[in-house]
Computed example of a mutant assay.
Amino acid sequence: MLKKLKLDYRYIKELDFGILIGSIVVLLYGALNIYTVTRGKVGIYYLKLQLIWLVLGLVTTYIILLVDYTIIKKFTSIIYWGSVSMLLLTRIIGSTVNGAQGWISLGNRAIQPAEFAKLGMIMMLAKKLDEMDGNINDVKNFFTLCFYALIPMLLIVVQPDMGMAMVCFFIVLGIFFTMGLNIKVILGGIMGIASSIAILWNSKLMKAYWKRRLISFLSPESDALGAGLQATRSKIGIGSGGIVGTGMGLKTGSTSYVSQFVPEAHTDFIFAALGEQWGFVGAILLLFLYAIIIYRAINIARTSKDIFGSVICVGVVSVFLFSILQNIGMTVGIMPITGITLPLMSYGGSSVLTNYIAIGLILNIGMRRKKINF
């Protein structure tokens, strides 16, 4: 029994430690910043929880590495439809957080099914493209892929969780583009999405506060105590960090500006905390760590032994790239506020766990690129 739980040394030699160590360092960096903005109110509460999620994430990653990803592929349909069922369940028993009915309560904790649904969608698209031998420009194949992508996306839109819907859209865009979909079709799809957004904008699904949040980034100062409050105060916090940061959150008996005045500083606006504490140098360090993870994941996508593995890597890279650009963009006022978390940095169990599931899949694919003789 214990033998089955031991990873063969020959696989360990193929493991991409750059991705694994990089992800751990980013999460620990995030946990430290979470602590700086929450210690004044709850002490080490959120820090402790984030570290627990790190351990659970690493255990999950290890379990994934034990099983050849080609075996995991056989369970893709169950994973996909299971995640869709969870999204449907949120319509019945889901609790509302920040205006979106997208959480299922489990005792005093809650999970966000949309986080798992985006992984289920990536895996289903990867499986179908593998079965299609990558022939995405066949009309039947294209609409089959769109069908599987639209189901979770529509269920996420009606929550309404526009941030996660945007993430799913860029997952699909990234996969379709890298798989060689005709550029005219991609442009047509973008125009179709733009039209859908226009319709959605004027529908009852788009709440008034969502509209205010989405457009407030154009002029946050015009409503500095309302929709523009987070963006305005976030920029003040980041700007005060200068080159090397203030370090106020770590000094005994002191509290930082971001911890006092920026709402959701430990989740959506964790980059504001980083910018204030560590300044420009700290921000560059984070981007460097992300670059290592993304570059190495792209390399695994390029060298994967099958389409299924490549597409999973591309899908996960798309999640990371868009989430990083969107989250940092909204904290510095150049992107609308959508509630998208910063991967591995923001506090959140569902986010951390799904990120490590995704990392586990990438490492699994990279580990089994070569034929290993036993």
Rank of each mutant, 00 (worst) to 15 (best):
L2Y: 13
K6G: 12
Y9E: 08
Y11W: 14
L15N: 04
I19S: 01
S23L: 02
S23A: 06
S23V: 08
I24R: 00
V26W: 00
V26Q: 00
L27M: 13
N33V: 00
N33K: 02
R39K: 15
R39E: 04
I44E: 01
Y46N: 03
W53L: 03
T70L: 14
T70W: 11
K73E: 13
K74G: 11
I78K: 08
L87M: 15
L87Y: 10
L89Q: 02
I92V: 13
I92L: 10
G94V: 06
S95L: 14
T96V: 15
T96E: 11
V97M: 13
N98D: 07
L106P: 06
G107I: 12
N108I: 03
N108V: 12
E115F: 14
K128E: 09
K128L: 14
L129R: 08
F142T: 10
F143T: 04
F143K: 01
T144K: 15
I151S: 03
Q159C: 12
M162Y: 15
G163M: 10
M164P: 07
A165K: 08
M166R: 08
V167W: 12
I175G: 01
F176K: 03
L181D: 05
K184A: 09
V185I: 09
G192H: 05
S195P: 07
A198P: 03
A198F: 13
N202I: 09
N202D: 04
S203G: 05
S203L: 15
K207A: 09
A208K: 14
R213H: 07
L214Q: 06
L225E: 05
G226P: 03
A227R: 04
A227I: 04
L229V: 09
Q230T: 11
T232W: 10
K235Y: 06
G242Q: 05
G245D: 01
G247M: 05
G247C: 06
G247F: 13
M248E: 04
K251H: 14
K251R: 15
T252N: 07
S254I: 11
S256W: 04
Y257M: 11
Y257K: 04
Y257P: 02
Y257L: 06
V258A: 06
V258C: 04
S259C: 09
S259E: 01
Q260M: 13
E264G: 01
A272P: 10
L274K: 00
W278K: 02
W278F: 11
F280K: 13
V281P: 04
L286F: 05
F288V: 07
L289N: 00
T303V: 12
S310K: 15
V311Y: 11
C313Q: 12
V314H: 08
V319C: 05
F320H: 14
F322T: 08
L325R: 09
N327M: 08
N327E: 00
M330I: 07
I334K: 11
T341R: 09
L342N: 01
P343F: 11
P343H: 12
S346W: 02
Y347A: 00
S350K: 13
S351I: 00
T354P: 02
Y356M: 02
I357K: 10
I362C: 02
I362R: 00
N364K: 13
I365L: 02
I365S: 03
R369W: 14
R369Y: 14
K370W: 07
N373R: 10
N373V: 15
N373A: 13
